[in-house]
Design a protein around this nucleic acid. Structure first.
Lengths: 346, 346
DNA sequence: ATTAGCACTCGAACAAGGGGAGTGCTAATA
DNA sequence: TATTAGCACTCCCCTTGTTCGAGTGCTAAT
């Protein structure tokens, strides 16, 4: 269907357009790209490519512009190239930057977003780990003052949730320990998403002498489930989009920026399954949301123990620099995963 | 210096310009505002006001536009009006919204920013409490697993900091309690900002049998100081700025949006002392940073026990709707303070 | 199959001109 | 003496017309 020369022409147009954002004509093409045939021949090829839906004309006497379908063809071939050879030197460079600014998980992700955006010049999107299968590892109640108790819950990723709550009557530390032990016995190893069921099924009845206190603890436990499921979104470099002529129209800029500010929608996109692909690319019209029909999103996963727990991504115009992007995202994906495993699983 | 009629003309121009963003001429002014004199007279007054530096002309045959100095005059008179009569009904309405979505402090602030921006149509900026004078209230070490220990620090605002760290040799819970008690004894009531000094002054020596463990604990304590001082910045409604003609030029939009993304600079502005004023307004050229010379920032404080601990603010073009803004910010200031006191000081 | 040649198309960029909202000045008015 | 009507003038904005050039598609020659 597409012979080598057609591909050559198509890729030349794509590469040119990614750089310049200008429609490109047959003459310019033959001058700057080594196609080996005359402009007239290129024109014929272009005409064929247009018929195939791979090129568009802004108007009848303008040059050609790649269609979303063309980008799809292009990125699929890039992804199939399987050039997973990560530049060790670059990798260490990025790693040391991320490492040096990351005392905590959220800082690591924030920094990643910032650096990713700086390097690529696109808007970076990062979500925090969602630990669907995290399990309760330790529960402890502590006396803080005469009528205040601290509840600490640790899960198997060592993410800690703690809350203080008031009690009406003072409780001895022995009592607290008894309850703590009881809770640990009952709940240790329990997946967080099962916690609600267990709580609903009359865990209370067994330790009815501490009923009042347990009644205080249970809402807090419930809440902690909720928060563990709560995924954070970090984004950086939103203003960078305004560098691209695609968003020079203020209404287009407003559309895309408003969309990015809608965290729920962005999260929805980033939480969608990657279907086993390390890198996922959604181009222009392929996007579900209308506001993104003229933009692309490239995402990569990061993981702990080989299990995907979060994503990083870049948002920009459909003519994104996919080639470099894919490599950069791979770099960050690997680095984030490694740092997470190394540092935060103590 | 400024007789009543001049003020009338000036305020009419300001009000008109705040709504329309268009220069206003003498004829339109006399038609739509009840000045009571002819356009010719208004022209004379305008000419005087221009000489006083209160009005500007975009070009010789255009209407007049208020200067920064005029806005300053205007907002100062607004602030002196002292119409601190807060609409109880509105207040409760906002309060119930904020309340319903705020399980945690950071959520409260995030929601506040969002709602504030929605109501006003400007970009909202909010910083988290900076608890300079927060004191250590409780410290506890806990066994999590055979070689992992959890350190919990509670301050007098009940903000909890907890970290897990590894130890080489298992430690008994008795030992941990001994150290916990020791640390509590030494550090209880200590202001966080004094902690570093105390740590540097050989706290170690007294309990040398646990030296190894203490050496692990101290960096964590140190870090906790750092984090307690770490102020978070939340912003919402950045894209809303693009609605204003002031930012319809893509370069101006880029300038202001890039600035907002620079959290350090924004924090610096928000952390500046309010000098006893509940509401602080910085107009156009009054701003330190060049990127803000065509914008204004209005901030209000929020507090616990009458002590200012954070700020909320709004950013927009110099012709902001100061009158409504001041009242809305007061509303949020009071509500945030009340919710903080009510809910989070358990 | 490829290419040179050519007529044609369309947008971008620039210039010219009319319309309109505004100004400042002067002289008349209360 | 303060106010106002009248008027000439200014300058931006918008529309219209024109040119210029990069690009196309078609046809005929190689």
């Amino acid at each position: 269907m597409l012979d080598e020369r057609k591909l050559k022409v198509l890729y030349a147009i794509i590469n040119s357009y990614i750089i310049s954002a200008e429609p490109i004509g047959s003459r310019t093409l033959s001058k700057h790209y080594d196609i080996g045939v005359s402009p007239a021949t290129i024109r014929n090829e272009m005409s064929d490519l247009e018929e195939l839906g791979l090129l568009n004309k802004p108007h009848s006497s303008a040059g050609r512009v790649p269609s979303d379908k063309a980008y799809r063809l292009y990125v699929d071939s890039l992804l199939n190239l399987n050039n997973i050879s990560i530049d060790e030197e670059k990798k260490q460079k990025v790693k040391s930057i991320l490492f040096s600014e990351s005392q905590e998980v959220d800082q690591l992700l924030q920094t990643s977003a910032r650096v990713l955006s700086e390097i690529t010049n696109y808007t970076a999107l990062v979500i925090s780990p969602h630990l669907e299968n995290s399990r309760i590892k330790h529960i402890q109640l502590l006396q803080v003052s005469s009528n205040q108790i601290l509840l600490v819950i640790v899960n198997n990723s060592d993410i800690i949730k703690s809350t203080i709550f008031k009690v009406d009557s003072p409780t001895s530390s022995n009592q607290l320990n008894t309850i703590s032990n009881f809770l640990n016995e009952k709940l240790n190893g329990l997946p967080l998403n099962k916690l609600k069921d267990v709580l609903n099924m009359g865990l209370l009845d067994e330790l009815y002498e501490y009923k009042d206190l347990l009644n205080k603890v249970i809402p807090v436990l419930n809440e902690s489930v909720y928060e563990a499921e709560d995924v954070e979104l970090y984004y950086e470099g939103v203003a960078r989009l305004l560098n691209y002529p695609e968003y020079k129209d203020i209404n287009k800029a407003k559309t895309i920026l408003s969309f990015i500010e809608d965290k729920d929608k962005v999260l929805e996109i980033l939480l969608k399954e990657n279907l086993g692909n390390e890198i996922q690319i959604v181009i222009g019209e392929e996007n579900v949301y209308d506001q993104l029909k003229e933009s692309s999103i490239v995402t990569a996963t990061y993981s702990i123990d080989g299990k995907t727990i979060g994503k990083i991504g870049l948002l920009g115009p459909t003519r994104m620099d996919y080639y470099n992007l894919i490599n950069t995202l791979r770099l960050f994906s690997v680095n984030i995963s490694e740092i997470l495993e190394m540092v935060f699983r103590k």
